[in-house]
Structure formats: structure tokens, C-alpha cells
Amino acid sequence: METKKIKTIDIIKEKRTVSAEAKQNLKEYNKIKKLILKSLESEAKTIPQIAAETELPLDVVTFYLMTLRRYGSIETGEIDDMDEYFSYKLKK
């Protein structure tokens, strides 16, 4: 008969609670991630274009877009004619 293996996460859950800050942080990340990924569904865009469309601050878009790029959801596209802004697109 197979015995069910105890997960250590269940043990720590009895001792620790998740902070309100951590929950809020996750909620915010999910919201921003959704907005950025949705914005890139139609075409590749630059950071200012994504910020204008999502109404998110520019630095917030930069931070989360680069994080999504790091974890493989987004890839870098072409640089614009003025050699100023790269465009970013969804990774297929």
C-alpha cells in the first residue's frame, strides 16, 4: 500500500502566515503582468507605447517588462529608427 508523502509546506503553514505585503505584492504583479502581456498581443511595442496604452508609470513597465523578459515570456525586438527605444514582443 502506498503511503502519502508529507509535504513540508504543510508543516511551515502551521507556524507561519503570509504577510499582507507579500499578498499585495503578488496581486500587483499579476495585474501588471496581465496588462503588459495583453498590450503586446497585437504587435511589438516600445516601453513608452506600453505605458501609454496601459496607463502604468514608465519605470513600472520597465521593471516588470524586463522581469517578464528574464523569465521568458517576452523577447526583444527591433530598435526604432532613432536608435532610442527597443520594441518587445511576446515569446512564441
Binding site: P48, D59, T62, E84, Y85
Partner: peptide, 14 residues
């Protein structure tokens, strides 16, 4: 590096 090139943290401009 954290970005794809040297970029400004505010808006990703080179």
C-alpha cells in the same frame, strides 16, 4: 545584464 542593452531604468531608452 538585467536588460537587453544599456538602458535607462525609467523608460528603457538607450
Amino acid at each position: 545584464r538585467p536588460y537587453n542593452s544599456v538602458l535607462r531604468p525609467k523608460d528603457g531608452k538607450m
